[in-house]
Design a protein around this nucleic acid. Sequence first.
DNA 1: TTTCCATTTTATAAATATTATAATCTAATA
DNA 2: TATTAGATTATAATATTTATAAAATGGAAA
Lengths: 138, 138
Amino acid sequence: MENRIKKYKSLKIKLTPQRLAILNYLEGNKMHPSVEQIFKYVSRRFPSMSYATVYNVLNTLVKHNVVKEISIDPDKKRFDPYMSTHHHLVCIKCRKIIDLDMDFSIGVPEDKLAGFTMMGNHIEFYGVCAQCRGKDKD
Amino acid sequence: MENRIKKYKSLKIKLTPQRLAILNYLEGNKMHPSVEQIFKYVSRRFPSMSYATVYNVLNTLVKHNVVKEISIDPDKKRFDPYMSTHHHLVCIKCRKIIDLDMDFSIGVPEDKLAGFTMMGNHIEFYGVCAQCRGKDKD
DNA sequence: TTTCCATTTTATAAATATTATAATCTAATA
DNA sequence: TATTAGATTATAATATTTATAAAATGGAAA
């Protein structure tokens, strides 16, 4: 069996061609693509692909902890196949999202938590990326 | 002139009744309300209020730094009138957003930034709120 | 005060994003 | 091979947001 398929055998879901194509597109993808981007790419190989399938597959993958849905873009959902703990640098000019591969353990004093059980954190750092900085020197 | 109005005089925008009603609803509001919630509340007093007006007013207020748009809810935009630096505790059960009034200065090593100019950060802490914890003891 | 006009509100349509439904198809297995 | 559970598809429906243009109005200026 192909490596590309074997890799996902541990998932307890049917490995349909559509799902494999989406998994393949997401594998190692650092673009935090939207549903539209995923649809446009994958439908080149699968002209019959519908948006519903992309939504279905993504929801399934989120449920099985293969990708994360991220809520940084206020206009649409974006997806991230990189499941290790990491954070994001968000450019306020071009809206690009860059992975920051670090793990911060941030202590919050009990009295600030008001009974909230802390399970993790995600930091959105905002600023200007190198490319945008280069463009508009003033 | 009423206090409620005088307070916003420094804003260089027309203080229409609709805008004052929205400002008034948002003042001190810790609910991080959605457009729908704002519309439903304010249209009780202003039955002629339209969604377009709520969107217009909110966009104006964001532009004038009176409220912040927050992208935590993946389904819709939410608005926060609390403009001081703070972070959020997000309940993964009920999706409630609780303010965390702290200021973390988080150092990121130069080599991880790749030319990104850091301007600030926002931390989303996720976990389970006191109420939800109380409900489903297992 | 009254007039005037830029701005705002409103109704409405349109665009975009997402979910729901049901028919069809596919693949595993009995 | 027949059965069937699950997946895909076309399509409709819903939800969110933006765009447009006409009507209304706040507030400066006469």
